[in-house]
């Protein structure tokens, strides 16, 4: 499984090597991911750093300036340059509230230097975080949520 995922991940950015002369309008459905943890492998395989398991870390990463990517259903990762209405292309925490959400987005795709970039013109729908990876992986990394907070949440749940 890991091998297949790794191979799939390795091909994601390769696919952008065939350059288009201009950007092209595309629709992408996928999850807004933390590209650092996804590509670096520092937190484990790519299946562990998406969805609910990695949500807290992904928010920290987005707040810290890590570029957000849109992991499409086709397996491609699109580096998101801006959302509709943003003046900035090189974003800060615009995506903080959207990390790990699965969205249906329209935008312009630019394949540059073997990398996919997406200028999002419209988020047509937001499905929230249906990818409940915490059931398999817990919290990734384990210290992303302080124990005291977990205890409080569990106490409230009881």
């Amino acid at each position: 499984m890991i091998g297949r995922l790794s191979a799939a991940a390795a091909t994601m950015l390769c696919a952008a090597s065939a350059h288009a002369a201009e950007g092209e309008r595309i629709d992408v459905t996928g999850e807004l991911i933390d590209t650092w943890c996804y590509f670096s492998g520092v937190m484990g395989g790519p299946e562990a750093v998406v969805g609910t398991a990695h949500h807290t870390c992904a928010m920290w990463c987005a707040a810290g300036g890590i570029p957000v990517g849109l992991l499409g259903e086709d397996g491609e990762v699109y580096m998101v340059l801006k959302l509709d209405g943003d003046d900035a292309a090189n974003g800060g925490d615009s995506f903080l509230t959207l990390t790990n959400d699965t969205v249906e987005a329209s935008g312009m795709h630019y394949a540059r230097d073997g990398i996919n970039y997406l200028v999002v013109s419209e988020v047509r729908s937001n499905l929230g975080i249906p990818n409940e990876t915490h059931e398999d992986f817990g919290v990734i990394p384990g210290n992303a949520i302080p124990d005291a907070v977990v205890d409080d949440v569990l106490a409230e749940a009881e």
Partner: peptide, 30 residues
């Protein structure tokens, strides 16, 4: 181990040669 495998796979992917054609211009000035 699987992290190393993944890193190697990603490195291979990231090292893929880009096409010869000039990349498409972005739709904003920088």
């Amino acid at each position: 181990m699987r992290v190393r495998l993944l890193a190697a796979a990603l490195a291979a992917g990231l090292a893929a040669p880009a096409g010869a054609e000039a990349p498409p211009p972005l739709p904003f000035d920088i």
